[in-house]
Amino acid sequence: MSPEYIIAAIVTIVGLTTPILLAGLGELVVEKSGVLNLGVEGMMLVGAISGFGVTVLTFSPWLGVLGAAAGGAVASMLFAVLVLQLNSNQVATGLALTIFGTGLSSLLGLSFTGRIIVPFLSVFPDALAKNPIGRLIFGYSPIVYFALIMVPAVYWFLKSTRAGLILRAVGENDHSAHSIGYSVVMVRYAAIAFGGAMAGIGGAYFSMVITPMWAEKMTAGRGWIALALVVFAGWRTGRLLAGAYFFGFLMWLELFAKANGFGTTLPFLQVIPSQFWAAMPYVMTIVALTIISARGTAGSNAPACLGRPFLPST
């Protein structure tokens, strides 16, 4: 394989990874605050149509990204009101949010079907991305850099800032946090909104960058992958990045194996059905997590209050 080929492959992997990385980072923060929001897929779809729609109307992809973040956050607020104010069951409410987001995005998308926008690609001068190395560094949509910057940002926020400390405290022991005087509900509102915004931007990566168009259910289940990533990462930011790229790599490997005609060029692989390659990313993810877990280094960082409603005893 030539260096050019490897670089081109990396560019593809970055494209596969960025949406799940964004949504996963958002969900990580939500879960760190003690809330389990299974509505990621729905929020991504709302983000995808919001980002696309705003871009169509304003001709500004930057506003589009903001719109996607706003759309995802607004959708997440429905969930937040229910689980925080009314203490509804988080699992069921999250799933209902996915049904809602799917329906809402389809409805909003009716008037945008068949339209296109200029893809939100690299904003660097073309000259920089001319040669392969330049493309490797400068060849992406601003959303890719945003996602990569958000990884250390979230890490730093959770680890080193006062707000991050409070957020983790709320997720670890909501009653203690409450008794010291922090507003558990407000912290969780903020976390859920952040998760919604990140999922929204992740969704917009589909509708604004990969395939600049709107199509119903275009996220094709990536929200569920993002949820699984948070578990895979053991609620650690760094491992989330690694996990997202690992999964992106496996998705690419499936296509690479098929496109290379492994069965034709390497006859002994003829016996391997195409479904094997399609199942591989999921099997390998389980295998990887098993190895990590079996070595005892998984160190599940799961917040103690994850998924439980907060009921202040008064």
Binding site: L78, L82, L86, S88, N89, A92, T93, A96, L97, I99, F100, T102, G103, L104, S105, S106, L107, L110, E216
Partner: peptide, 18 residues
Amino acid sequence: PNSTAGIFQAMMLFFILA
């Protein structure tokens, strides 16, 4: 449209959960 039916279904779920 099918999408409206979905929103409606979600709304009912939200109310029941709430």
